[in-house]
């Protein structure tokens, strides 16, 4: 409870919460109110500017309603972000927990692997992995989690190793606690904060990755709208209609800025060093 109160006190964090909440609400509540769906073509009304008649944000190159498409794209992005976060957090916690706790060869192998994968340009991984599956939301969730779990794993591993030698852990171990008990009851509550921070930032990262992959043409496929492939389409029409490029970028920015603000605020709110005035350094 204390953390929530501290979080809300940080101005950027509460602004982030508001941004993300508004965007999520808009994705759910607004589409049923719109007269046109995101896929409805109307060749008589192409390239309408924002604020024209029944199209609050105008229409695209084949007369589809931009607001409807933006909201559909944002919903896909949020879903991809949340699912990829869930998958990568679970995988990262399990692998990082095991390597941090048991160490040994598994740890050396895993960390070498993580080092090597971090050597690849992210775009290369995203694009090659994307070509393995049917392009679509499920594939993107899969590949983004494949790239993102390592960071969670590193954080969990590092935190557990930092805690291993602390007195309370040694004491619990000496009392004969089982590995499961130690991991779930002793370590987990102590590193939950760090996990929450990485996971929040990972939602933001997943949304950005979707935009990159779809922009380069390997993600969500047209006619299904996504914030990334809308930007790809817009590239050809910068001259007649720059709005087509500007608007999807703003929606991506709202989502990612909001999430980054929340993640950043959480890091501050969960940091015990920040909780009261200086002096209590440990």
């Amino acid at each position: 409870m204390n953390t929530v109160r501290r979080l809300l006190k940080i101005r950027t964090a509460s602004a982030g919460l508001v941004l993300v909440a508004l965007l999520a609400l808009a994705c759910v509540l607004v589409p049923p109110l719109l007269p046109r769906g995101p896929l409805q073509i109307d060749l008589h009304h192409r390239f309408l500017p924002p604020l024209s008649g029944i199209h609050p944000l105008g229409t695209d190159e084949i007369g589809r309603d931009i607001l409807a498409r933006l909201l559909a794209g944002a919903r896909t992005s949020l879903l991809i972000g949340l699912s990829a976060m869930a998958l990568s957090t679970v995988t990262g916690c399990i692998t990082g927990g095991l390597t941090g706790f048991y160490g040994g060869w598994t740890r050396i192998i895993l960390m070498r692997l993580v080092d090597a994968v971090l050597c690849f340009p992210t775009i290369f991984l995203l694009l090659t992995l994307a070509s393995f599956g049917q392009p679509g939301a499920a594939t993107i969730i899969g590949i983004v989690s494949l790239v993102a779990w390592m960071e969670v794993s590193r954080v969990v591993d590092g935190q557990i190793r930092a805690l291993r030698d602390r007195e309370f852990i040694v004491a619990v171990e000496a009392m004969g606690a089982s590995a499961t008990h130690m991991l779930l009851r002793e370590f987990l509550p102590n590193i939950a904060g760090a996990i929450v921070v990485v996971s929040t930032l990972n939602v933001a990262r997943a949304i950005l990755m979707e935009a990159y992959v779809s922009y380069l043409g390997n993600g969500i496929q047209p006619p299904q709208p996504s914030l990334g492939n809308m930007l790809n389409d817009a590239q050809e029409y910068l001259r007649p209609d720059p709005w087509l490029a500007i608007l999807p970028g703003i929606v991506i920015a709202i989502a990612v800025i909001g999430l980054n603000f929340i993640g950043d605020g959480l890091r501050t709110a969960l940091d015990p060093r920040q909780s009261n005035a200086s002096g209590s350094r440990r």
Partner: peptide, 12 residues
């Protein structure tokens, strides 16, 4: 700045 994809700045 970190929250906006690079290519969007490019397009704009």
């Amino acid at each position: 700045l970190l929250s906006i994809p690079t290519f969007w700045f490019g397009l704009v």
